[in-house]
């Protein structure tokens, strides 16, 4: 058969496929019924066959290009993006992630880096003799003043209508920092810098507030106790996940750099998901319980329970098991 006849014979089917594609592209919520779907698939397959035989048919280059684009568009409508599988996520969060964290060296390094810098910074800020001006240098005069002002009065429960506002502010602000730690980890250095910087500032604030000559200190610890465990763990987790991402293209274990990156992306994204859950929980506690007038005992109990939950999650759920699969 000569090309002209072939084109005349096939053109109507290509046009039909083209118009179905256009319909599907323009209306995302449109669903085809059974016969339409099978018709669409049949049209797509025959266009695929035409493209495969294009050389044998001696189709003109223009027509081949047209077919490439048409098959491409139909392919994208037939194979659509898959949305989130929440059941699989729960499984992932409760079994895979804790085990991965338990054995992940990067999380341990991030843990050591964060808490090491935190403790050193806190000790320097608290000690009145070692480096008396350290807190001033690290935090700046204005921030110290602002902190002392905001914690100058005992925490007696603020107007409850501000609680949701503050909770969502903490979600916005703290989770944002966590995501930056994670994304910055891809380039290794920015991730470490963001993590260490946050550790130093937090450590300096804690240390300064622990000084006996700072009257606001009591109220400060009254405020931070309840949500501390979740929030600080979440920062460590996001930094660790970012570090793993960044190291994966430096140490590839025999894979190509891109493959190694891709593999670690699949592993670290769920860890970051766990960190985000912790940030959300911390923000809820920080927004509702921490500023309330509840006695310190209750806040301490919440801190102990949340630390216990974290221990359970990391150690009991995360302990490596022999019987995999």
């Amino acid at each position: 058969m000569k090309t002209a006849e072939l084109l005349a014979a096939r053109q109507s089917q290509w046009n039909e496929l083209d118009s179905v594609c256009a319909q599907l592209e323009n209306d995302r919520w449109r669903r085809l019924n059974g016969t339409q779907v099978s018709r669409f698939a049949a049209l797509y397959r025959s266009a695929c066959a035409d493209l495969a035989l294009a050389d044998a048919y001696q189709l003109p280059p223009n027509t081949i290009q047209y077919l490439h684009r048409l098959v491409g568009r139909a392919h994208n409508q037939l194979y659509r993006s898959r949305t989130f599988d929440f059941a699989a996520w729960t499984r992932l969060l409760l079994t895979d992630v804790p085990r991965r964290i338990f054995t992940d060296g990067c999380v341990q390094v991030a843990f050591a880096a964060f808490w090491g810098v935190f403790l050193i910074s806190a000790y320097l800020a608290a000690s009145p003799t070692l480096w008396p001006d350290y807190a001033e240098h690290a935090l700046g005069h204005e921030q110290i003043q602002a902190m002392e002002d905001s914690f100058s009065e005992p925490i007696a429960g603020r107007n409850a209508k501000y609680n949701p506002l503050m909770a969502s502010f903490y979600i916005y602000h703290n989770t944002g920092i966590g995501l930056k730690c994670f994304a910055g980890g891809l380039l290794v250095l920015p991730g470490i810098l963001i993590t260490v910087f946050n550790a130093a500032v937090l450590g300096a604030s804690f240390g300064y507030m622990a000084r006996p000559d700072v009257p606001a200190g009591v109220n400060f610890f009254h405020f931070v106790t309840a949500h501390g465990p979740f929030e600080l763990t979440a920062i460590v987790l996001s930094a660790g996940a970012g570090l793993r991402l960044g190291l994966s293209w430096l140490r590839t274990d025999g894979l190509t750099r891109t493959d190694s990156l891709r593999k670690s992306a699949n592993e670290t994204m769920p860890v970051m998901g766990a960190a985000m859950v912790l940030f959300f929980l911390a923000a809820l506690i920080e927004g509702f319980l921490s500023p309330s007038a509840a006695p310190y005992v209750i806040k301490a109990i919440v801190a102990i329970i949340s630390s216990g939950l974290l221990m359970f999650y990391f150690v009991v759920l995360g302990f490596p098991r022999e019987t995999e699969l």
């Binding site: 083209d18 223009n62 290009q65 047209y66 048409l70 994208n76």
Partner: peptide, 8 residues
């Protein structure tokens, strides 16, 4: 992803 017109 472009829509191309068939070339006769």
């Amino acid at each position: 992803e472009e829509r191309r017109w068939a070339v006769a």
